[in-house]
Simulated assay, not measured.
Amino acid sequence: MSKQQPPTYGGQALIEGVMFGSKNHTVTAIRRKDDSLDYFYVPKEQKPISTKLKKIPFVRGIVALVESAGIGSRHLTFANERYDVMPGEEVEPSEEETSKLGMIIGVAAIGVLSFLFGKFVFTLVPVFLAQMLEFMAPGKTAQILLESFFKLALLLIYISLISMTPLIKRVFKYHGAEHKVINTYENGLPLTVENVQSQSRLHYRCGSSFLLFTVIVGMFIYFFVPYDPFWLRIVNRILLIPVVIGVSFEVLQFTNGLRNIPVLKYLGYPGLWLQLLTTKEPDDDQVQVAIASFNKLLEIEEQGIENVEILKSTDAVVHQNTATVN
């Protein structure tokens, strides 16, 4: 009898909170202004088309990213609108202002479009920068290497600049708390603050690693497509965006599968190095929020969403988080 694979969980850092997701559910816990916790739940709808596409290598990554952008935007909106508001003072949209379906579609669309816009800028700006310096680095190989250098530099500069703001610094701490909770669960330890804090804030499946892999994978893919004329290079870069995303996703999954194998585990280290910028060591209070979010997700998976109270604006922090994960 084959051994059943344990469920895989992912997450996302938010303003004053953490979202965790499984195959069918996503849950957010945020710290409110009065130091209480508030929860938000969004189901993952298993549509037949997306379910089939997720089984196709190099295509499943694109589907997963689009889905994550849509769902993640809803959790971000929830956190942004409530973290600095006292419970009971929230301004809820009326039916006249927007329908529930319209709001969901709108927020999801914004998330997807924001991701695509950022990807276009991140892809095309380095091409123009490299072209401007063609007199110093002529030829296809030199141009692709220079383009990749600018792409990596832009990524590092962007992360470094936003990490200087107090708000993003706290988000990066919650990002570290998210990874620590996942590592605690995957190592089979009880979800206590002490255990979680003892874990690494880095994780092989992190989206930060994925971003770095798009730079590396894109560089190799560009060697196999036409380089001249310049307009064709631009067209190629645009058309290859889904290809780079799909291949990078597979590389991310591949390196995650090798993380416990000596020597081969180092293939994922470049992504972990980037996480040194996108994660920070969290405070105990932030770890408590992450634990609460993950415990709520486990509770939903065990009991079903219909049996779990999820939206509780005055749910105090439970300091004795003793859920054991085997």
Rank of each mutant, 00 (worst) to 15 (best):
residue 230 F to S: 07
residue 231 W to G: 04
residue 232 L to M: 15
residue 233 R to C: 07
residue 233 R to F: 08
residue 233 R to Y: 10
residue 233 R to I: 11
residue 233 R to N: 12
residue 234 I to E: 02
residue 234 I to P: 00
residue 234 I to H: 06
residue 235 V to E: 12
residue 235 V to M: 11
residue 235 V to H: 05
residue 235 V to G: 07
residue 235 V to F: 11
residue 236 N to Y: 15
residue 236 N to L: 14
residue 236 N to R: 09
residue 236 N to K: 11
residue 237 R to Y: 12
residue 237 R to L: 10
residue 238 I to K: 02
residue 239 L to I: 15
residue 240 L to P: 01
residue 242 P to N: 15
residue 243 V to G: 03
residue 243 V to I: 13
residue 244 V to C: 02
residue 244 V to P: 00
residue 245 I to N: 00
residue 245 I to E: 00
residue 246 G to A: 09
residue 246 G to P: 01
residue 246 G to W: 00
residue 247 V to M: 04
residue 248 S to G: 08
residue 250 E to M: 09
residue 251 V to T: 06
residue 252 L to A: 08
residue 252 L to M: 13
residue 252 L to R: 03
residue 253 Q to I: 14
residue 253 Q to A: 06
residue 254 F to H: 08
residue 255 T to C: 15
residue 255 T to V: 15
residue 257 G to Y: 13
residue 258 L to Q: 03
residue 259 R to N: 09
residue 262 P to R: 01
residue 262 P to Y: 00
residue 264 L to D: 09
residue 264 L to I: 10
residue 264 L to M: 12
residue 264 L to N: 07
residue 264 L to G: 07
residue 264 L to R: 08
residue 265 K to W: 10
residue 266 Y to E: 11
residue 266 Y to N: 09
residue 269 Y to C: 04
residue 269 Y to R: 07
residue 270 P to M: 15
residue 271 G to H: 04
residue 271 G to S: 14
residue 271 G to D: 09
residue 271 G to I: 04
residue 272 L to H: 03
residue 272 L to F: 07
residue 272 L to V: 06
residue 273 W to P: 05
residue 273 W to L: 09
residue 273 W to R: 04
residue 274 L to R: 00
residue 274 L to F: 11
residue 275 Q to W: 06
residue 275 Q to R: 05
residue 276 L to W: 15
residue 276 L to V: 10
residue 279 T to P: 03
residue 280 K to Y: 10
residue 280 K to M: 13
residue 280 K to V: 03
residue 282 P to Q: 12
residue 283 D to L: 13
residue 283 D to I: 09
residue 284 D to W: 11
residue 285 D to M: 14
residue 286 Q to N: 12
residue 286 Q to F: 13
residue 286 Q to G: 06
residue 286 Q to Y: 08
residue 287 V to I: 15
residue 287 V to G: 01
residue 287 V to A: 06
residue 288 Q to C: 11
residue 288 Q to T: 08
residue 288 Q to S: 12
residue 289 V to R: 01
residue 289 V to H: 05
residue 289 V to P: 03
residue 289 V to G: 02
residue 291 I to D: 00
residue 291 I to R: 00
residue 291 I to A: 02
residue 292 A to H: 13
residue 294 F to V: 05
residue 294 F to S: 02
residue 294 F to K: 02
residue 296 K to M: 12
residue 297 L to S: 01
residue 299 E to M: 12
residue 302 E to H: 14
residue 303 Q to N: 13
residue 305 I to R: 07
residue 305 I to C: 03
residue 306 E to M: 14
residue 306 E to S: 12
